[in-house]
């Protein structure tokens, strides 16, 4: 397998269907499993919760809860009991999906090929390197933005935003198109930012993995093998920061956009 084939193979989803109705099975399965893991761990933690001196894991989860609560307090005007749980779910779920990027790129595809007996079986285990995942999440947030905008501002208030913003009452047709573009850009920027960062990160991991794949048997291996280990470790440590930051940004921008939907005047 050549270099291009190797990269293409790792960036292809295991899918069924055709055209618009293509379902990426690996993306769906991994994201569901991570969601289930999150629910399972939360339920176990609730059962074992202590009121006195909390254990190590409970302490860790409480610190995440505090972190999210502080961010919601800072970025969200007013009160809505849905926002903090939503932000927490987004943060942890996106972080878990991003975390799959840190697993060695060949491990799961190789195991999957062994299990299925198909040496060319596709498996892409990072759901956030699939635009479908990030767009689905951002469109869900977008639906919430529209719902709360109409609920808080009323139908006329929301329509007024399209009619008179940003150029006033004399440019209504331009205002409608302009505001519509601005609204569409919200989910688009949310989705593309997360997808772009994670996809690029995955690609760098693949390029580093290729160093080992193209090892020359002989003395050159003494140079290339340690280089791959060092580069991989360095990128992994840096990427740990990237995945956390991207999960944080997705969460914070969700809170901010929902906060803007809750403001009376746009």
């Amino acid at each position: 397998m050549g270099t291009v084939e190797y990269i293409q193979h790792h960036l292809t989803n295991n899918s069924v269907g055709e055209g618009f109705w293509t379902f990426h099975l690996d993306t769906i399965a991994v994201s569901f499993m991570l969601g289930a893991l999150m629910i399972f761990v939360s339920m176990r933690l609730v059962k074992q919760m202590e009121t006195g001196t909390p254990g190590g894991f409970q302490n860790f989860v409480e610190s995440i809860l505090d972190f999210v609560a502080v961010n919601v307090r800072d970025a969200f005007p007013g009160h809505n009991p849905l926002i903090a749980p939503l932000a927490l779910t987004i943060f942890i779920w996106v972080w878990l999906m991003n975390f799959m990027d840190l697993i060695p790129v060949d491990l799961f595809p190789y195991l999957f090929q062994l299990i299925t007996g198909n040496p060319h079986a596709y498996l892409k285990i990072v759901p956030t390197t699939d635009l479908n995942t990030t767009l689905a999440m951002s469109l869900t947030v977008f639906c919430l933005i529209i719902y709360y905008s109409i609920k808080i501002k009323g139908v006329w208030g929301y329509t007024k935003m399209f009619l008179f913003h940003p150029f006033g009452k004399f440019f209504i047709p331009v205002n409608i198109i302009m505001t519509f573009i601005e609204e569409v850009s919200k989910p688009l920027s949310l989705a593309l930012r997360l997808f772009g960062n994670l996809f690029a990160g995955e690609l760098v991991f693949l390029l580093i993995a290729l160093i080992g794949g193209t090892l020359a048997v002989g003395a050159a291996a003494l140079f290339w093998a340690p280089l791959q280990v060092i580069l991989d470790l360095a990128w992994l440590i840096f990427h740990l920061l990237v995945i956390t930051l991207q999960a944080f940004i997705f969460m914070v921008l969700t809170i901010v956009y929902l906060g803007m939907a809750h403001e009376e005047a746009h």
Binding site: E182, S185, K186, L188, S189, L190, L192, I249, L253
Partner: peptide, 13 residues
């Protein structure tokens, strides 16, 4: 935080 990507996304939108 997202000013840059917001600009790009608005053009694409």
């Amino acid at each position: 935080i997202g000013a840059g990507s917001m600009f790009t996304a608005t053009v694409i939108a």
